[in-house]
Structures are given as structure tokens and as C-alpha cells.
């Protein structure tokens, strides 16, 4: 059972109020009519399916009805961060920066 923090309502609500809407940060090809079959197929059907950290879109369907992003571990189901549309994950950015500084990975990201 998830207890999800909606970044727009700024509070935690139960999973029932939300719907998962698939992978986040997908970019539609800029010129669809010029995209090859391969590019278009990749965009339509091929999704990341990581065993570990995953960025997803969810919608607060029964609440404010806004879409937002979640950074979640698909094995432990820990939600590391929720953040509004149009933004990037600060937790992921901090992990990358930490790895570049040579720090050990934090436990939650161990499977990533």
C-alpha cells in the first residue's frame, strides 16, 4: 500500500486516490512525420523496466487531478521523491553527483 505525497496538494494520501500512468520524462519525436519506423516504435512501445529506481508519472485522480512524477524503487517499493511536472528529480541528481564525487551509493539506490 502506497502512501503518496502529492506535490500539488502538498500532503500524503492513500494509493486509492492515485493512478499510475507509466514512465516519466518521455520525449515525443520532434518531427513525427520524419521519424523512422524504428524511432516511432521505440517511442510508442519500448519502456524502461528497471529492477530498481524508476521514474514514473502518476495522477492524483481523486484529488487535484494533476499529473506529477515519482522516483520509486520497483523492488522495495520505496518512494524516494515526488516532484511536479516539468521538473527533474533532485534525489537522482544528488545521487549522480555523489557518485561522481566517489561517495558510496546510499542504501535506497543500491539496486539501481
Amino acid at each position: 500500500m502506497f502512501y503518496i505525497h502529492c506535490p500539488y496538494c502538498n500532503e500524503r494520501r492513500s494509493e486509492e486516490e492515485f493512478h499510475a500512468k507509466g514512465q516519466a520524462h518521455l520525449m515525443r519525436p520532434a518531427n513525427p512525420e520524419e521519424a523512422s519506423d524504428r524511432e516511432w516504435g521505440d517511442y510508442l512501445f519500448f519502456r524502461d523496466n528497471p529492477r530498481g529506481l524508476h521514474q514514473e508519472m502518476w495522477v492524483h485522480a481523486a484529488g487535484c487531478r494533476k499529473f506529477f512524477n515519482i522516483l520509486r524503487n520497483t523492488v522495495s517499493y520505496e518512494i524516494l521523491e515526488t516532484y511536479p511536472m516539468g521538473e527533474q528529480s533532485s534525489v537522482l541528481a544528488e545521487m549522480t553527483a555523489g557518485r561522481e564525487r566517489g561517495e558510496p551509493r546510499r542504501a535506497a539506490g543500491a539496486v539501481a
Binding site: M1, N49, E56, R72
Partner: peptide, 14 residues
């Protein structure tokens, strides 16, 4: 199925 991706081999209560 639950609508989200997961490898946890457990499902949600709702």
C-alpha cells in the same frame, strides 16, 4: 494487475 511496475512479488490492498 497493479497499474505500476514492480518486482516485489506482492500486490496492493486496493
Amino acid at each position: 494487475i497493479d497499474a505500476y511496475n514492480g518486482y516485489g512479488q506482492r500486490g496492493s490492498y486496493p
